[in-house]
Simulated scan of single mutants.
Amino acid sequence: MIIEPRLLVTRFAPHAERLANSLNDSGCFSIAQPLLTVTELDDPKTLDTFLSGYYDYVIAVSGNAVRYAQQQINIDWPKACYLAVGQSTQNILNEVTVQDVLCPLTRFDSEGLLDLDELKSIKNKRVLILRGEGGRDLLETTLIERGAKVDFFQTYKRIKIDLNGHELVNNWQQASINGAIISSVEILNQLFMLVPKEYTSWIDELIFYVPSERVAKQAALLGAQHIVLLPSLHTDQIVEFFKVNNGNCI
């Protein structure tokens, strides 16, 4: 059975609106509804250590982590081996560091990063992970197991937006929303927390478009029955994905 996608875009603002507008312009009905917002965190001690050139490797796990770090940096980024979890983050990191940034070719998650040759032999190397508050334990754990010294530069924290779940789900149902673009585990969890229990069957039947196996696994644990891996979180690639595939998973 072919399903014409009618999408809920849950990314942070303003990215949700930009993606929804691009999808609508391409003929794919979409509604933007950010579920979380972010606010900057200050960590002067780690920032000073970073800017001193102390770290051999710097890993960015999100575009927001890079953007909020850049707001605190008034000089050139130090020389290091820079890596990014996905292509969108890679593009942002390339721009601010003016250096080549490595990125997985296919799997855009912690496992993809850890499979890069550059992170396989890092004994006694100093690694800084740019991220939001909380984050990816697998990345830290595995790097430490490989002998690296790992620190974090937490540049922002996520904040839940106060929303009316009943009202929103009614609006989404009236718009015949049948799919949701989810960019992170945190946003996925927030969506399931937002939707009232009486709508459990509705959310379980949504098609979840996710960027990584990590998010896909969590969606399955929460009860999602239809999960599709996106090629990237880059707006142009998502739009092209729905043009070519029509978003079909059934």
Rank of each mutant, 00 (worst) to 15 (best):
N21H: 13
D109V: 09
G132Q: 10
T89S: 04
I177P: 10
K120P: 07
L230R: 10
K125Q: 15
L188Q: 11
I2M: 08
G53W: 13
F241I: 08
S88G: 08
E95A: 12
R18P: 01
Q190E: 12
N178C: 15
P211R: 08
G27D: 04
Q72Y: 00
I207M: 07
N91Y: 08
T49L: 12
L114N: 00
K217E: 12
A16H: 09
P104E: 06
L35E: 07
A60F: 03
I182W: 07
N21L: 15
L114A: 00
H166N: 15
K157I: 00
I187N: 02
Q218F: 02
E111Y: 07
V150W: 05
F153E: 05
L23C: 05
A80I: 04
D204F: 00
S30V: 13
K197T: 14
A175E: 14
F241A: 11
Q174W: 00
C81Q: 07
K79H: 09
V38F: 09
G86K: 14
I3S: 14
M193N: 12
R11N: 05
G179N: 09
S30A: 15
Y57D: 01
Q154A: 13
S22C: 04
Q87N: 06
A175I: 00
L191Q: 04
Y82K: 14
Q99D: 07
L8H: 01
P104F: 13
D43S: 14
P231Q: 03
Y199Q: 03
R131Q: 15
I75C: 15
I3V: 13
I161M: 05
D56V: 06
N248Q: 10
I73T: 08
F241P: 02
L168M: 07
V101Q: 13
V85P: 02
Q237G: 00
P14Y: 03
N248M: 08
S22Q: 11
T235D: 12
L233Q: 10
N248R: 02
M193A: 10
V185R: 12
K125T: 15
A60Q: 02
T97V: 02
K79G: 05
E198F: 12
I207C: 11
Q99G: 02
F192Q: 01
F192K: 01
H166M: 13
I144K: 13
L19S: 06
T49A: 13
P5W: 03
S88Y: 06
L194H: 03
A180M: 09
Q225C: 05
G147R: 01
C249E: 09
K157A: 01
A65P: 03
V61N: 04
S88F: 01
P231G: 02
N246Y: 09
I182F: 09
E213G: 07
L233A: 09
E145D: 13
Y57C: 03
L51T: 03
K45Q: 15
R131M: 12
G86T: 14
G86C: 11
K79W: 05
A60M: 06
L230D: 09
S88C: 02
E17R: 10
V98P: 00
R107C: 04
V101W: 15
E205A: 15
P14C: 06
L51P: 01
K157Q: 10
L139K: 11
R18K: 12
L83Q: 12
I227W: 03
L138W: 04
L102E: 12
F241L: 05
T10R: 06
A65Q: 07
A80K: 05
G112E: 04
A20V: 14
E167D: 13
F29Y: 12
E4T: 06
L116V: 06
